[in-house]
């Protein structure tokens, strides 16, 4: 049993949310370290030193050949063994925004029980054609095996992307994903009652900010250990980052609702690794 799980937060090549992602894991009770991708690629470091892996947001390689694609390739070809070992050791992985795109393009998401590094889905240009930064409301599938989202009903946090529309080649693929409860989180209409917001019908812009099929915001692999999402829960780590924080009296509590996702993983690691 580990008291203080160690978290590897990838950085380099245009990843740019590495500092805040590292910080929220520290605030959640872990010890994080920003590790350059090439340290893992060249063998100076090994993923096995860590209990949790985070692939943060950013614009790896400028997203020029499709978001997350080139970093996904580096991981797929140069870190394949380390990643396979990490997943089979039952260690959690999160990909946020560009990190989610990377995990989808490496094939770790939606993935198989044992990673085969086959790409099965994609994240493509928002229907609006625009990159946007705006706050969204998320709800979570209570029956999902995802260890990152346990016990969370609804949170608000920002999306900041131009390529967040989740697509799969066929409807049956989506049905299967949904039946497995791998669609861990979706965009919902904030005016619905918490717990009642999830729907398969694509919600209008900007509630569903990118036109994602079935309002998919994030998915997990069949084990529930690998989780990726387009929105940024780490950007809602503090109450004062919520756009409405001035609409009520000053909240003395500093930590915000985005923290729960990171706490879940830290607690999982503490209990299981």
């Amino acid at each position: 049993m580990v008291d203080t799980p160690k978290v590897a937060v990838l950085f380099g090549f245009g990843i740019n949310c590495d500092r805040e992602t590292a910080a929220v894991f520290d605030l959640a009770g872990a010890t994080s370290e920003r590790v350059h991708v090439n340290h893992f690629v060249n063998g100076e470091r090994d993923l096995s030193e860590f209990h949790i892996l985070a692939v943060p947001g950013g614009f790896s390689f400028g997203d020029h050949l499709g978001s997350g694609r080139l970093l996904g390739n580096r991981m797929r070809f140069a870190m394949r063994e380390q990643l396979t070992a990490f997943v089979s050791a039952g260690k959690p992985i999160i990909g946020i925004c560009n990190g989610f795109q990377v995990l989808v393009k490496t094939g770790l998401l939606p993935g198989k029980e044992v990673p085969d590094f086959e790409q099965r889905a994609s994240l493509t240009l928002n229907n609006s054609g625009r990159y946007e930064d705006r706050w969204v409301t998320l709800e979570f599938d209570p029956e999902s095996p995802c260890i990152w989202t346990k016990g969370i009903t609804r949170i608000e946090c920002p999306v900041r992307h131009g390529e967040g529309r989740f697509v799969m080649p066929s409807t049956t693929d989506l049905d299967e994903l949904q039946a497995n409860h791998q669609i861990a989180t979706r965009y919902v209409d904030p005016s619905t009652e918490p717990g009642q917001g999830i729907t398969d019908e694509t919600l209008p812009f900007p509630i569903c900010p990118n036109g994602s099929i079935r309002n998919i915001a994030g998915i997990c692999d069949p084990t529930g250990l690998v989780f990726g999402l387009m929105p940024h829960p780490e950007a809602a780590y503090a109450t004062f980052l919520h756009p409405h924080h001035t609409r009520s009296d000053v909240n003395e509590e500093i930590l915000g609702e985005g923290m729960q996702i990171f706490r879940n993983a830290v607690e999982y690691a503490q209990a299981n690794l």
């Binding site: 740019n16 949310c17 500092r19 805040e20 910080a23 929220v24 947001g57 625009r130 990159y131 946007e132 930064d133 705006r134 920002p158 900041r160 940024h232 780490e234 950007a235 780590y237 503090a238 004062f240 980052l241 756009p243 409405h244 924080h245 001035t246 609409r247």
Partner: peptide, 20 residues
């Protein structure tokens, strides 16, 4: 302005857009 990322680094306590 919404097409600029105004929240990366998770530090922006008053953003370019406010209100209900």
């Amino acid at each position: 302005v919404r097409q600029y990322d105004h929240e990366v680094i998770a530090q922006t306590a008053v953003k370019p857009f406010v209100g209900v």
